[in-house]
Amino acid sequence: MTLKLALQTLILTALCGVGGFAASFLHLPLPFMMGPLIISGLIATVFADKLPDDYRFPMKFRIVFMSLIGVMIGSRVHADLLPEIPSLLASLAVLSGFVFAAHGLNYVIFRHLGGYDRPTAFYSGTPGGLMESLAMGEEAGANLAVLTMQQFFRIITVISIVPIGLSLWHGAPVGSAGGLSLGSAETSLSALPVALAVGLTGLFIGTTIKLPAAQLTGPLIAAAIVTVLGLADLALPQWVINLSQVVIGTSLGMRFTGLKGRMMVVAAGLSLISVTVMLALGALCAVLLHRFTGAAFDVLMISFAPGGVTEMGLIALSLQANPALVTLHHVYRIILTVIEMAVIARIRPKDRL
């Protein structure tokens, strides 16, 4: 990353950080991610001409902070969690059905309501596997600009609706909007180098063996191993968690650089319909599993919400749900979606998707 790009990114992140404090003052859910996302989204779409030519948010900068989020989630895994794994079989089985049903319903929405061509509708409707959907969709002849918008709108719509919906469900603000903290204000800076080393090690291994969402799952698994074995205390101070959310929110909003006009409005409307349908389906699955397994409804709801792995892990943390169990569900959802895409693409010609 050049010095010029680094300076531009630091200025942008600082500006969006102000949006995080404003969102915190307004008691918005996940304020230090939602505030920067809103600010950077406005900059990318309304004030794109004010940005330097060809500016792109550096993903390597983002990955460092995503690794720290992975460490934070992994540090919540303790040995007493392991006996719960067999009880997950029921929810993972239901999640399998959810993936196929959600993709089918989304295809109908994008194909018949949105009027998209078959490849674009098929890959826009995947309930996970963002990068894989873009890569396979481009290869199949999908409209990449539309596909990119729909996939990012899916994530942003989910992380906007889910915390608000759960606040309404509980009848009061929940998570960070209700004053809960993701980190520890008393943690010293001495824990940060160890956490960063564990995160980067997990990132390297996860990327090498090609784990799904490796920038999160690699550090998560590494931190979980370190925590379960009692090798180190990986607790992170609150300001590090807030900064990580600011960087992630800023980078998400900047994905919309240069997008404007009717196409964006249509994509946002279709995304709202699609996400509403998927969340309703996820809520139905959560209600059924709650009745048969006794698992908490809100934890199940987060587990079925088709957002980004990092973002849903943050929501789980902010609600004091078990982030490791929630993340496991989302990693499984991504793996299953990618397998489903590959199988269907292989057995059906792209003009018959």
Rank of each mutant, 00 (worst) to 15 (best):
G137R: 11
V162Y: 00
G114D: 13
D80N: 14
E84W: 01
A44L: 03
M59W: 12
T157S: 12
L105D: 01
R76M: 15
V77Y: 13
P58A: 02
M59Y: 04
L89F: 09
M131I: 03
Y123T: 12
Y116D: 11
Q151V: 06
L42H: 00
S133P: 00
T148K: 00
T120Q: 06
Y123N: 12
N106P: 01
Y107V: 04
I63E: 10
L144V: 14
G115W: 02
D117W: 08
M136K: 10
Q151T: 09
A79E: 15
E84M: 05
Y123L: 14
S96Q: 02
L37E: 10
P36R: 02
L82C: 01
R154T: 00
M34K: 09
L37M: 14
T126Y: 12
M34W: 12
V158K: 11
V46P: 02
M59S: 10
S160Y: 02
T126Q: 15
I109P: 03
M136C: 11
S40Q: 08
M72G: 02
A93Q: 05
I161M: 14
V158D: 12
G97C: 04
P52A: 02
F32R: 03
I109G: 12
H112Y: 15
T45A: 00
R76Q: 14
R56E: 13
S87R: 11
L81M: 13
M66W: 11
S75G: 01
L130F: 01
K50G: 13
G74T: 05
M136Q: 05
I155Y: 08
V71R: 08
A145M: 11
F152C: 08
F122Y: 04
G141Y: 08
G137W: 12
V64I: 14
S160A: 04
V77M: 15
E139C: 03
Y55P: 15
G104Q: 05
N143S: 06
L95R: 01
G137S: 10
E138Y: 07
M136S: 05
K50Y: 15
G70N: 10
D54I: 02
T126M: 15
G74K: 03
F65V: 01
V71W: 03
F152R: 10
K50L: 14
G137H: 05
P127T: 11
T45N: 00
T120K: 07
A48K: 02
D117H: 12
D54A: 12
H78A: 03
M72K: 02
M33Y: 11
A142R: 00
P58S: 10
A48H: 11
